[in-house]
């Protein structure tokens, strides 16, 4: 089973991104400049990548084992869209990264999948305290999950990653792998369930399927039956209760935005409430 996500565009986008073929000087070893590609781009374009604690854990592993030069090139790759696609399946992340060769490199990152017995034990442990599912469902990885797993002798985050890349660089992780890891970390920010999915349990399996609420839909009376009052309202609209504005930026607190956007958007939310009182819409007479 594989969870494919992040296939940008309609498929034409990233492949068409390979323009021209400046082959490296020595014919096969990668030259300094990668080919232009329009793949996945890291959202954070500056500073460190990974804004939640659980995605930082992957970055930490990476930054522990990788040398500085490859790290920074990997980050640059992640930001310029060299990673063409990325698939996550239980135990395996595969990605294609556009390097300097015409043919993109294939990156594979393996992780141990928990066995069925382990998972049923973990599921029981998670279910024992509602707070874990509550946090997961609200979109965050509970910090205690890691301790909880550890208490049962299980690592949520691997000490080491089994990394593989089809590039000729001898060193592991190479910049292609680090680029993929950066992007992987960012995707964990958005959906903590992916961490668990990599370990072999999807959100659906863990919690059962969720209902996706759609936009409210209203059944309209056909025009044919509304000819007599074509220009008139179909019903009265109860006046909405006038609610005092909540503390500024409440939405950002209840639903944290992706990446580091919270602090960048906060000024906007602060300006929306309260002070703009002079612009209150006039009531109709």
């Amino acid at each position: 089973m594989a969870w494919a996500w992040w296939h940008p565009g309609a498929g034409a986008g990233h492949r068409a991104g390979v323009v021209g073929v400046p082959v490296g000087k020595d014919g096969w070893f990668e030259a300094g400049k990668p080919l232009k590609a329009d793949g996945l781009r890291a959202r954070t374009q500056r500073g460190s990548i990974g804004s939640t604690w659980w995605s930082r854990r992957f970055i930490d592993i990476l930054e522990r084992v990788c040398d500085k030069g490859r790290l920074s090139r990997g980050r640059a790759y992640a930001r310029t869209g060299q990673v063409l696609d990325l698939d996550l399946a239980p135990g395996l992340v595969t990605a294609r990264v556009q390097g300097s060769r015409r043919e993109p490199y294939t990156v594979e990152i393996r992780i141990e999948v928990y066995g069925e017995a382990v998972w049923s034990m973990l599921e029981r442990v998670i279910a024992e305290q509602a707070v874990h599912r509550a946090r997961l469902l609200a979109g965050e990885m509970p910090t205690e999950i890691e301790e909880l797993f550890a208490a049962h002798g299980i690592d949520l985050f691997p000490r080491d990653l089994d990394l593989d890349c089809s590039c000729p660089d001898w060193s592991r992780p190479c910049k292609h792998v680090s680029a993929v890891l950066y992007l992987l970390a960012e995707s964990f920010d958005d959906d903590p369930f992916l961490v668990l999915a990599w370990r072999g349990r999807s959100k659906e399996e863990l919690l059962g399927s969720m209902e996706e609420p759609g936009a409210p839909v209203v059944e309209d009376v056909p025009f044919g039956e509304r000819l007599a009052d074509f220009y008139s309202p179909g019903a009265g609209v109860p006046r909405p209760e006038l609610r005092p504005p909540p503390p500024a930026g409440l939405l950002l607190r209840v639903h944290p935005p992706p990446g580091d956007l919270a602090h960048r958007l906060r000024p906007a939310y602060e300006a929306l409430g309260g002070k703009a009182g002079e612009e209150e819409p006039a009531e109709l007479v």
Binding site: Q129, V131, L137, A138, G208, E211
Partner: peptide, 26 residues
């Protein structure tokens, strides 16, 4: 799920709620 997700969001505003969620079915 709706109840759990709501409680998960409420936790961000009211951390003391955590102590109630230490059972399977609070």
């Amino acid at each position: 799920h709706e109840l759990l997700a709501g409680l998960g969001r409420a936790l961000r505003l009211y951390p003391a709620l955590d102590q109630a969620l230490r059972t399977a079915h609070p």
